[in-house]
Design a protein around this nucleic acid. Structure first.
Length: 570
RNA sequence: CGGGAAGUAGCUCAGUUUGGCAGAGCACCUGGUUUGGGACCAGGGGGUCGCAGGUUCAAUUCCUGUCUUCCCGACCA
């Protein structure tokens, strides 16, 4: 392809709207342009990379029996009302009306649409299992789009759905897909981790996320220094060691703590460490049951774990009004587990068991209790792991300690179970002729997010540095002086030679100065540059490796060998 | 949704304090000279100063409202 025909407007300066490297470079190198907040045009270079990523995805999924198809982006809202997600998914949905005032949404994901299709078309367990996937533009009206392609309102996603008549079948497929995902992310050259994740939000059971390691990631990955334990922060646990408390427990006393609402204020006022306090946080589970979560003062409550501990579908922090209602106008800050109202379920973290003579809110304005002891002064309905792990905690397998790093979620796989098939009545007849709900899985890869994650991990001061597997072109041919006949001749010879061998070749046929061409080439990030200069008359060119900057001179007769040696080394 | 910042040429940004002809560099067009790391000379084109209203003889500049974009947080996955 001739560069004069490629639409790749490069920018000398960094546009002021771009903060992170991948965003800056994709703008500067002429890969993308913004059209609105969180909405981008993919220019030819980006589109070529996307097609290469998609090709890898297709190869890996087809290899395990996945079948590609395409669903509409436009989805009638009624389907989402059936599953119940129309109300729970909330303002993230792009909503619209047609001319007859019928409600539609632009699909943020397609569990409903697939479930309806399968419900209507599949009758017998004999037609299962099925693994269907699509690569499609999705819409989520993010509150805050950010970081270029990393968090967009319109983005490209590969979503797959599987349908089964048994858990075994689902489990088998889940493992196959997980392996396919690993292959995909390895092939595109991503540095990633597979972590245990929360499946609850999608209404399922087991779930794992594929995280691109990156300092700009919005998710926290927890890993062990010694073992291979890795988890999403939401799901991470640590080793809890219960102490046998021999310390003398004192009787609880009421203490006056005027206006002391926060953990720090109370700890300072009473001159005790924060770890001596009981932190009480109120939630409402499934919009009805109040839940008091108790953790040690220096710990944080993990909302997801609370939700799992009380077996709720969803959970939300209690509002100030709800707290006042339950606790008789008590200002937040003085609630505690002693003598809680009947309606409130109390769940305490495991570490609370180890506490002696703790301090907690007295459920009276301006008062805390001191010398409170679990088991003596209060008894939670349940002890469970409901706290956020902290760096330095012992790994749950007892090997090493936990550390944190940041990651970008580029893939997510869920065992959905019957969450959608039950609410939408998708059943098949089993061997005994009885209706059973179809068991489902769903699996996603953020294609456009993957593109920017790879750039985030593969760039230097000069520009992008593509892994060879998804580079927009394999070889960038740069004649310094196209007017020079030797150079022009040699350039077109090489283009033909490489294209005949199946390489994607970009020829910089522009009448630009060498510096401009080199700078653009470095921005583009094509793995190999072939510079044709003065020695063209002798049939000698330079091959430069974008990644290392290494340059070798080679005769045109040897160029194929040189290139295959250089590429195989990668 | 809370906090912060910014909207002036395609891009980066001055000018606004103290109201008085709309600016620079890069980019673009024409001609010429150049040609191995973002050339040079000469000439030229390009603006609803985000939008609306107000104050004023006069508003890019002051006031009010509003829209958009970015950042931090919350939220979401």
């Amino acid at each position: 392809m001739k560069q004069s025909q490629l639409f790749a407007p490069t920018l000398r300066e960094t546009p002021n709207d771009a903060e992170v490297i991948s965003h800056q470079l994709m703008l500067r190198a002429g890969y993308i342009r913004q059209i609105s907040s969180g909405v981008y045009t993919y220019l030819p270079l980006a589109f070529r990379v996307i097609k290469k990523i998609e090709q890898i995805v297709r190869e890996e999924l087809d290899a395990i029996g996945g079948v590609e198809m395409l669903l509409p982006t436009l989805v009638p809202a009624d389907l989402w009302k059936e599953s119940g997600r129309f109300s729970t998914y909330g303002p993230e949905m792009m909503k619209m009306e047609d001319r007859n005032q019928r409600d539609f949404i632009l699909g943020p994901t397609h569990e409903e649409t697939f479930t309806k299709l399968i419900r209507d078309e599949i009758r017998s367990y004999k037609q299962l299992p099925l693994h269907l996937y699509q690569i499609q533009t999705k819409y989520r009206d993010e509150k805050r789009p950010r970081f270029g392609l990393l968090r967009c309102r319109e983005f490209i996603m590969k979503d797959a759905y599987t349908f089964h008549d048994s858990e075994e079948s689902l489990n088998e497929m889940y493992v196959q897909i997980r392996n396919a995902y690993k292959n995909i992310f390895e092939r595109v050259g991503l540095n990633f981790q597979v972590v245990t994740a929360d499946a609850g939000a999608m209404g399922g059971r087991e779930s794992q996320e594929f995280m691109a390691l990156s300092s700009i990631g919005e998710d926290t990955i927890v890993y062990s220094t010694e073992s291979d334990y890795v988890a999403n922060l939401e799901m991470a646990t640590s080793k809890f060691r219960k102490k046998t408390n021999t310390a003398i427990k004192h009787d609880k006393e009421l203490s006056h703590t005027p206006d002391m609402k926060t953990i720090e204020e109370v700890a300072n006022y009473l001159n005790v460490p924060t770890r001596q306090l009981l932190k009480a946080v109120l939630f409402v589970a499934d919009e009805q049951t109040p839940v008091m979560a108790i953790v040690r003062g220096d710990h944080e409550v993990n909302e997801i774990k609370v939700r799992m501990a009380v077996n709720a579908q969803e959970i939300a922090p209690a509002t100030d009004e709800q707290i006042k209602e339950l606790f008789d106008d008590l200002p937040a800050g003085f609630v505690g587990p002693v003598d809680v109202p009947e309606a409130v379920a109390v769940v305490a973290d495991l570490y609370v068991q180890n506490m002696v003579d703790a301090v907690c809110g007295a459920n009276q304005k301006d008062h805390h209790y001191i010398n409170v002891n679990p088991g003596k002064d209060f008894e939670p309905e349940k002890y469970a792991d409901i706290r956020m792990v902290q760096e330095g905690d012992e790994s749950p397998d007892g090997e090493g300690v936990l550390k944190f790093s940041k990651g970008i979620e580029v893939g997510h796989i869920f065992k959905l179970g019957t969450r959608y098939s039950e609410s939408m009545n998708a059943t098949v007849l089993d061997k005994n002729g009885r209706n059973i709900p179809i068991i489902m899985g769903s699996y996603g890869i953020g294609i456009s997010r993957l593109l920017s994650s790879v750039v985030e991990q593969n760039a230097d001061d000069q520009g992008i540095v593509w892994p060879t597997s998804i580079a927009p072109f394999d070889i960038h041919i740069i004649p310094i002086q196209l007017k020079n006949e030797d150079q022009a001749q040699l350039a077109s010879e090489l283009v033909e030679l490489f294209e005949a061998r199946g390489y994607d070749v970009l020829l910089d046929d522009r009448n630009e100065r060498a510096g401009v061409k080199f700078n653009d080439a470095e921005l583009f990030g094509i793995p190999l540059q072939i510079t044709i200069g003065k020695k063209a008359s002798e049939g000698i060119v330079e091959v430069t490796i974008r990644k290392t900057g290494e340059m070798v001179e080679t005769k045109k007769e040897d160029i194929l060998d040189t290139i295959s040696i250089l590429t195989s080394r990668d």
